[in-house]
Measured scan of single mutants.
Amino acid sequence: KELVLALYDYQEKSPREVTMKKGDILTLLNSTNKDWWKVEVADRQGFVPAAYVKKL
C-alpha cells in the first residue's frame, strides 16, 4: 500500500474529510482526483487536499 506524508495540519470541514497533523503518515487509498486524495488515518477514511500531502 502507498503512504503519504502530511505536509501541513488540516482540519476537516465536512464528514467526508479527515483531520491530519503535519508529519502524520497516512495510507493513500485513491489519488485519481488531482485536488482531493482519499486517505486512511486512525481507522477513518476520508479526503484531504492533495497539495497538503506528499507521496513517500
Results as ranks from 00 to 15, higher is better:
residue 1 K to N: 10
residue 1 K to S: 09
residue 2 E to R: 12
residue 2 E to T: 14
residue 3 L to D: 04
residue 4 V to Q: 01
residue 4 V to T: 02
residue 4 V to Y: 08
residue 5 L to D: 01
residue 5 L to Y: 11
residue 5 L to V: 15
residue 5 L to N: 02
residue 6 A to T: 04
residue 6 A to W: 02
residue 6 A to Y: 01
residue 7 L to E: 04
residue 7 L to P: 00
residue 7 L to A: 04
residue 8 Y to R: 15
residue 8 Y to A: 11
residue 9 D to T: 06
residue 9 D to W: 04
residue 10 Y to V: 01
residue 10 Y to W: 11
residue 10 Y to S: 00
residue 11 Q to W: 13
residue 11 Q to C: 11
residue 12 E to W: 06
residue 12 E to D: 05
residue 13 K to V: 09
residue 13 K to T: 12
residue 15 P to C: 10
residue 15 P to M: 10
residue 15 P to E: 12
residue 16 R to Q: 13
residue 17 E to T: 09
residue 17 E to F: 07
residue 18 V to R: 02
residue 18 V to C: 10
residue 19 T to Q: 05
residue 19 T to V: 03
residue 20 M to D: 01
residue 21 K to V: 10
residue 21 K to N: 08
residue 21 K to R: 13
residue 22 K to S: 08
residue 23 G to H: 05
residue 23 G to S: 03
residue 24 D to I: 05
residue 24 D to G: 04
residue 24 D to N: 07
residue 24 D to M: 15
residue 25 I to G: 00
residue 26 L to E: 01
residue 26 L to I: 08
residue 27 T to S: 10
residue 27 T to C: 11
residue 27 T to N: 09
residue 28 L to V: 06
residue 28 L to F: 04
residue 29 L to V: 13
residue 29 L to W: 06
residue 29 L to S: 03
residue 30 N to Q: 10
residue 30 N to E: 15
residue 30 N to Y: 07
residue 30 N to G: 07
residue 32 T to W: 10
residue 32 T to Q: 13
residue 32 T to P: 04
residue 32 T to C: 13
residue 33 N to H: 12
residue 33 N to T: 07
residue 34 K to Y: 09
residue 34 K to P: 14
residue 34 K to C: 11
residue 34 K to E: 10
residue 34 K to L: 11
residue 34 K to N: 12
residue 35 D to Q: 14
residue 35 D to S: 13
residue 35 D to V: 15
residue 35 D to K: 14
residue 35 D to A: 12
residue 36 W to S: 02
residue 37 W to C: 04
residue 37 W to I: 05
residue 37 W to G: 00
residue 37 W to S: 02
residue 37 W to F: 07
residue 38 K to I: 14
residue 39 V to T: 01
residue 39 V to C: 05
residue 39 V to D: 00
residue 39 V to M: 02
residue 40 E to D: 07
residue 40 E to A: 11
residue 40 E to G: 10
residue 40 E to M: 11
residue 41 V to Y: 12
residue 41 V to T: 15
residue 42 A to W: 12
residue 42 A to S: 13
residue 42 A to K: 14
residue 42 A to Y: 14
residue 43 D to R: 08
residue 43 D to A: 10
residue 43 D to L: 09
residue 43 D to V: 08
residue 43 D to Y: 11
residue 44 R to Y: 05
residue 44 R to G: 06
residue 44 R to V: 07
residue 45 Q to K: 11
residue 45 Q to L: 08
residue 45 Q to H: 10
residue 45 Q to F: 08
residue 45 Q to P: 06
residue 45 Q to I: 13
residue 46 G to V: 05
residue 46 G to H: 02
residue 46 G to T: 02
residue 46 G to R: 02
residue 47 F to L: 09
residue 47 F to S: 03
residue 48 V to P: 00
residue 48 V to C: 03
residue 48 V to T: 01
residue 48 V to Y: 00
residue 48 V to D: 02
residue 49 P to A: 03
residue 49 P to D: 02
residue 49 P to M: 03
residue 50 A to T: 06
residue 50 A to R: 14
residue 51 A to W: 09
residue 52 Y to A: 11
residue 52 Y to C: 11
residue 52 Y to G: 06
residue 52 Y to V: 06
residue 53 V to C: 15
residue 53 V to F: 06
residue 53 V to M: 07
residue 53 V to P: 00
residue 53 V to E: 01
residue 54 K to R: 14
residue 54 K to A: 13
residue 54 K to Y: 11
residue 55 K to R: 15
residue 56 L to Y: 09
residue 56 L to P: 03
